[in-house]
Design a binder for these strands. Structure first.
Lengths: 120, 120
DNA sequence: TGAACATATGAACAATAACTCATATGAAAG
DNA sequence: CTTTCATATGAGTTATTGTTCATATGTTCA
């Protein structure tokens, strides 16, 4: 009513006010939805998807992944950092080399479900 | 060997050459992996996640969603366009208003799986 | 201790994308 | 046909992010 810019917010379309309120109570809290988006953001890059796919098959060192994807060691290392922070991959050190692997089977499930949507 | 920048590509770490080659054959093709990343990119924004979550409960018009998320009609419309293009939502027209809803149950499955990872 | 190698990381740059603003489209009602 | 209302869209701006480049860290071996 006292809204300055009427184009911004439709005040008249309050026909479905009941629906709006019902849904509002069921919505998870802001922070959780934000975290969920952040998780998917990690999957939303083809380099990282490739890294994850590669790790389906076998644990692997940074250098091998870089060679496999034909990318620089630095680029891969940066992305592994992101994957590590999201708890999607874990690593173990063996001398000079660091082996990365998937953190759990969740990752594979999530990706497979995405693949289903793509290939249907 | 004749590689200009030796820092870029590690030529010595060919210990795991067998692993690299084995994995290479199992990797889906470039385009498919790209599409998969594109799909997750769509989920990777909190506004879109919110929209999808809202549509879990009920079909809804643009105006209602905007009001529910306290965002401009334009912003919501832009994001619905992205969701439409990814075949995550569908819509039906009823007079002046357009009702959006989830395209299939896949969307809910994907999001729920992500939630599991977050809340574990 | 120092050289060699695998990996990590900070800064800079370029590309992408979300939102705003202004306006266009499209449907219903007068 | 014109007005009104819901939605869509193009351009511009700002924020985010993936990669490169240069360099640091950390481990092994001589």
């Amino acid at each position: 009513m006292i809204d300055k810019n009427q184009t911004e917010r439709c005040d008249v379309c309050e026909v479905h006010q009941d629906i709006v309120q019902a849904v509002q109570t069921q919505l998870p809290d802001e922070e959780q939805l934000y975290d969920l988006a952040e998780l998917y953001k990690v999957f939303g890059d083809s380099t990282r998807i490739k890294i994850l796919y590669v790790l389906f098959e076998s644990e692997m060192c940074v250098c091998d992944i870089a060679q496999l994807l034909n990318m620089s060691q630095s680029a891969i290392s940066h992305q592994l950092r992101v994957l590590k922070q999201s708890r999607l991959v874990k690593f173990r050190r063996e001398g000079k080399t660091v082996f990365y692997s998937l953190n759990d089977r969740h990752v594979e499930q999530i990706i497979n479900q995405g693949m289903e949507h793509i290939t249907e």
